[in-house]
Simulated scan of single mutants.
Amino acid sequence: MSTLKPEVNSNDHIQGDDTASVTIVEFGDYQCPYCGNAYPILKEIEETFGHQIKFVFRHFPLANAHQYAVPAALAAEAAGLQGKFWEMHDALFENQYRLDGDLFDELAETIGLDLERFRQDSVSDVLREKVEHDFDSGVRSGVNGTPSFYVNGAKFDGAATDLYQMLKESTT
């Protein structure tokens, strides 16, 4: 069975309660249509299970298939430096249908980022390394496509809908 390597740590983007009994890690790609389809289901999981779950997103951009996957990951990381990773994360998925090179600045403005700083951060080597580190973590953890989910450190075989079903059964 594949396990998450490394475990969730301070380098991760974490949403939810520290005392949560369930930690879900998604390896995702902002341009992947399957990740786009999973996004509203994951939002519903967060709303339904609230403080029972902690949600972590790690980048797994499939750069060969998706030309905007890496720039989108960098945009999310750049927003994160201004404390708005999750706002950019959500905006990227909600606007996935029109993902292109012009979208990032528009979303940065929409969520209230300092645009100059955002543009500089988007091209920083430090953020590129963070995205590559996430990707390597996915490779080491046995990710073979996006989205891939890990529940409490173990690979979950199934889609977001299966994950929702499993959570409903295990938390009742």
Rank of each mutant, 00 (worst) to 15 (best):
M1L: 12
M1Y: 11
S2H: 10
T3L: 03
T3W: 04
E7K: 05
E7I: 12
E7S: 04
E7H: 03
V8H: 02
S10T: 13
N11G: 11
Q15Y: 13
D18S: 15
A20R: 00
S21P: 01
V22S: 05
V22T: 15
F27L: 07
G28C: 11
G28E: 06
D29V: 15
Y34A: 15
G36V: 12
A38S: 14
Y39Q: 08
Y39C: 00
P40S: 12
K43L: 12
E46Q: 14
E46S: 11
F49Y: 15
G50W: 00
H51R: 12
Q52E: 13
Q52W: 01
V56H: 11
F57I: 01
F60V: 06
P61G: 08
H66N: 02
Q67M: 09
Q67T: 11
A69P: 09
A69E: 03
V70W: 01
A72Y: 00
A72V: 09
L74G: 09
A76Y: 03
E77N: 02
A78N: 05
A78D: 03
A79Y: 03
Q82Y: 10
K84A: 06
K84H: 07
F85K: 15
W86Q: 02
E87Y: 06
M88V: 05
M88C: 07
H89Q: 07
H89C: 02
D90Q: 03
F93L: 00
F93G: 05
E94L: 15
E94A: 12
N95S: 09
Q96T: 05
Q96I: 13
Y97V: 13
Y97M: 09
L99C: 06
L99Y: 02
L99F: 11
L99H: 13
D102W: 01
D102A: 10
F104W: 06
F104N: 02
D105M: 01
E106V: 10
L107N: 12
E109Y: 08
T110E: 02
I111Q: 09
G112Y: 05
G112S: 00
D114N: 06
E116D: 04
R117Q: 11
F118H: 10
S122V: 01
V123T: 13
D125H: 10
R128P: 00
R128E: 04
E129T: 12
K130F: 02
K130E: 12
D134S: 07
F135I: 00
F135M: 08
D136I: 05
D136K: 06
D136E: 06
S137E: 08
G138Q: 00
V139P: 02
R140E: 13
R140M: 13
G142K: 13
G142C: 09
G145E: 11
T146E: 00
T146M: 01
T146G: 04
P147D: 00
F149P: 10
V151I: 14
N152V: 06
N152L: 01
G153N: 04
A154D: 06
A154I: 09
A154K: 14
K155E: 03
F156V: 08
F156L: 13
F156N: 06
F156H: 10
G158Y: 03
A159D: 09
A159E: 14
A159Q: 14
T161G: 08
D162T: 14
L163V: 02
L163S: 01
M166K: 15
K168N: 10
K168S: 14
E169N: 11
S170T: 07
T171I: 07
T172S: 08
